[in-house]
Design a protein around this nucleic acid. Structure first.
Lengths: 135, 135
DNA sequence: CTTTACGTTGACGTTAACGTCAACTAGGGA
DNA sequence: TCCCTAGTTGACGTTAACGTCAACGTAAAG
């Protein structure tokens, strides 16, 4: 019952909104919301949205950003960073400084995670010790 | 101008709401909100809130959870996990399974972060290469 | 004793990120 | 042709996490 959408004349595969929503585990409404605020911009065939690989890539970036707890507006700046114009030196330098900021942010989050994992490990060990003592 | 709150008769230091708010970089309102939903439960002297080390520890856990993008309700379950009763074997076993779930979740987030950092590194390198080529 | 700083409780407002109808359209199969 | 499925656009509702008054209490300082 798989009904891959007709490939465009250029042979690139496309997907319907139901297909991408199912694939990424979100609702139709969520996809529409991301389009509303300009995070994705699927083409149209008539009135229907047509998703290409590019759109799926962006969706993956968005959802990973969400898992990491970033608000959509911040996710937008990340995506924009990745496909901003990079022709001029000033643009490249700006991109690099932005990337460094993101790196700092992400590394701090990783420290938070490592701390959490360490505490969790100690907690588990402590519980296990109590269990052993009780048996 | 430091005015540490009077220490209780048991010699344990305490803090006012303004002090903890400033220390953790949040507003008075935020602290109150956490109390409203039961994430912290500072004592009272008369009508005023009195914070002890325990409260500050919890605040630190809450805010780290927030940095990691967890909703407050999920943060509550984490905190509850840490100071739930652990007397009986069944309680200990439950605590351990909960802790394992959290570990899985955190490890997945760390993978997300590592992927993000890898992509970011490649991006920076690519920008740098373009810059070198232009100079 | 009055001002001032700090604290308190409502209670309504706001923003983000969708959920949830309702009402409509468009294409394909029986 | 008729209907069914999938898709579309509003538009209002909802939840989380506070922001932002307003109105009041109180303890210490001048």
């Amino acid at each position: 019952m798989l009904t891959p959408m007709a490939s465009g004349r250029d042979g690139e595969r496309t997907w319907s909104i139901a297909q991408v929503a199912a694939e990424f585990g979100v609702t139709h409404r969520t996809v529409r919301h991301y389009e509303d605020i300009g995070l994705i911009a699927p083409e149209r065939h008539g009135t229907r949205r047509v998703f290409r690989r590019r759109d799926r890539t962006r969706l993956a970036l968005i959802l990973r950003g969400k898992r990491l707890g970033f608000p959509l507006e911040e996710i937008r700046t990340i995506i924009d960073l990745y496909d901003a114009p990079r022709g001029k030196t000033s643009q490249l330098e700006y991109a690099i400084t932005q990337a460094r900021k993101r790196r700092v942010d992400l590394e701090e989050r990783r420290r938070d995670i490592d701390e959490s994992l360490a505490e969790l490990g100690a907690f588990e060990a402590s519980c296990q010790a109590d269990l052993d003592r009780l048996s």
